[in-house]
Design a protein around this nucleic acid. Structure first.
Lengths: 95, 95
DNA sequence: TGAGTACTTGCCAGACTGGAAAGTGACGAG
DNA sequence: CTCGTCACTTTCCAGTCTGGCAAGTACTCA
């Protein structure tokens, strides 16, 4: 079996990490809008990824609003690259 | 959210369909060896895919042994292509 | 201090997976 | 024709995962 990282493979989390891969950090609210999930669900995904050391979140204030920024750690980027590589090995035979 | 087909997205089934995409048919035993899962698990995945019309299985005899061949239907190939396209849209931002 | 915002956590129901073991049907042997 | 075996199928079941709602927490601003 390919070494697909189950933590990353779940659709919601795959979307989180690929979204984060393009930027240094994203706002919690932005991710929630991208994923179209409830606060609680996103929060739980983020904390699962944080527990694995794949993301790191940072809280601060922006324009008077409290905001949480989330970014991939280097461990997370590495895990994502490996996951994507495994995925590509699988899907590159298609077409 | 990307339109990832949940039936195809599960790792085991993704592997089944990508394996099948390269050939016209594969033997049950071959798939079981590729996936490294038990008979029952593979059987259940195949029937789930068959229920969706993604694969078709055919039984016959080869060299004295009964064998089940499994192949993607055109519906299955189409679903796989779409799934892979959605996946690529997600992962192509990586790297 | 109080209201409001922005998450976080607890609780829970439903879906999904996987393995073990029992069941089924089609040969092939005798 | 009958029996044993083989190759899956199905059933049963336990563990995990997801998602939503609702309650809780913490920090800001007025």
């Amino acid at each position: 079996m390919a070494e697909l990282d189950p933590l990353i493979h779940a659709p919601a989390r795959l979307q989180v990490v690929t979204t984060l891969s393009a930027v240094s950090e994203a706002e919690f609210a932005t991710l929630r809008a991208v994923l179209e999930v409830s606060d609680s669900v996103l929060s739980k995904h983020i904390s699962a990824l944080a527990d694995a050391g794949y993301v790191r979140s940072r809280k601060g204030v922006q324009a008077g609003r409290r905001t949480t920024w989330v970014g991939l750690t280097s461990t997370g980027r590495k895990a994502l690259r490996e996951h994507v590589a495994a995925l590509r090995r699988l899907i590159d035979v298609v077409d």
